[in-house]
Write a protein that binds this DNA or RNA. Structure first.
Lengths: 232, 232
DNA sequence: TGTACATCAGTGAACGCGCGTTCACTGATGTAC
DNA sequence: TGTACATCAGTGAACGCGCGTTCACTGATGTAC
């Protein structure tokens, strides 16, 4: 009953996937704001109204793409960490591996990256379902810092008075067990990581940075330093 | 001849400004991808074809908005630095003042910020004219580092071998006079600054960072540290 | 100062296009007896 | 195993909308003599 579904159910799964694949292709050509159900249907040889059997509206299709993008990016980050960990890498190397994985995924899926980390799509607001997938990358980074902290500890300067409460709240909200100054540094590093990737991807490195891989590797090392994972 | 223009010329300047103002308003409501000449014209009580007397196409209007946005942001950064300098602030305080000015401008003009630092508008590619205005913020930061370097110097660890050439090239391209490791750190800090502002603005701080001003101030201090401007 | 002409802002209609969504329908697949 | 009915994927037409851009035009402003 749960393994062998009927032809109807199997077809449904396949067509749903085909719609999302085609929508991702359309995303790449036109951007999220111009994602069009009719264009997707046309490309699939269906009539546009048929898509409504699969997604109740354009926004629901967008939501599905966003969740998939977060999940795909999150999986890439988790894989990179798992691989580094299996190779016996210390926390700093794991951190850098995850940063590199995020950048690599973004370069491979620029429009899905823009979908989640670019400017918001006008008229669209992400529903609750995106929250879980959205935090996978951050959780991976938190995991690395947790094990570093459990190992040799993380030495960071104390927080300014004005930020202690907020850092405490953030810690108990999503980074239980870390010292608050590490939590604060982590969030800042995460924002900075996204900044590095976004600027490269959105064309701001034009005429500025040429050797982008080397530059990113250096910056990722600085980020590691910023969260208390200094070199050597 | 150059001071008192005819009624025609004065009208042209005013209508051009009115069109851009209305377009900025429309930007805020719908986003850049949906910026519509017809909607702008409608709002101004003109007929849509009349706009073609002022901008040869939709893309040219977009370009004008982008240049204005870069200029407005650049002016905000420069003002902040001038003010800090006039108050006798040391380089680190000037750096932080400029970062704060960028954030404040972005919060005040979120859609213009998204226009220049958000995901690229599909089907639009920025022409040469945007390059100059685009670099005003970076140039302000470079100026601060130059005077810090001329003063007490800037102590940063040496660059990894793989980045020395690139850092040298960047230095001679746009930061003549700075040590290459400072140039590299500056570019990374600039990307990270944009990341901090973008994430806050694009809604990624939801459920994560609450006391955003305090958090940003702390992060800006870390950025200053990263370019060799440590506290006290 | 007055006249003839050139310039140009703004009009209104049109072209050709694409969009999201609804709805009554057909016909194939699945289910209960 | 066979029949009757329910479910549901996909169709095709339609609604009502908005878009960028072109074009021939009117009428006011500016310029040269």
């Amino acid at each position: 009953m749960s393994t062998v579904r009927g032809a109807r159910e199997r077809a449904r799964v396949e067509v749903t996937a085909a719609i999302k694949d085609e929508a991702r292709r359309s995303l790449a050509a036109e951007g999220a704001a111009k994602l069009s159900l009719r264009a997707v249907a046309r490309e699939l040889g269906m009539v546009s109204s048929a898509l409504y059997r699969y997604f109740p509206s354009r926004n629901d299709l967008l939501t599905a793409l966003i969740i998939d993008a977060y999940d795909s990016l999150g999986a890439a980050a988790e894989d990179a960490d798992r691989t580094a960990l299996a190779a016996g890498a210390p926390p700093r190397a794991r951190w850098i591996a995850v940063c590199e994985a995020v950048r690599a995924w973004a370069l491979a899926h620029p429009h899905e990256y823009a979908l989640v980390y670019g400017s918001p799509v006008p008229g669209y607001s992400a529903p609750q379902d995106t929250i879980g997938p959205a935090s996978r990358v951050a959780n991976t980074l938190i995991g690395i810092l947790r094990s570093a902290y459990a190992g040799h500890g993380l030495a960071l300067p104390p927080l300014p008075a004005g930020l202690r409460r907020e850092a405490g709240r953030m810690t108990s909200d999503f980074a239980e067990g870390l010292p608050p100054e590490v939590t604060a540094a982590l969030v800042a590093a995460w924002a900075q990581l996204v900044g590095l990737v976004s600027l490269e991807l959105f064309g701001q490195y034009e005429r500025v940075v040429e050797e982008r891989a080397a530059f990113f590797a250096h910056a990722a090392g600085q980020l590691a330093h910023g969260v208390g994972l200094p070199a050597a």
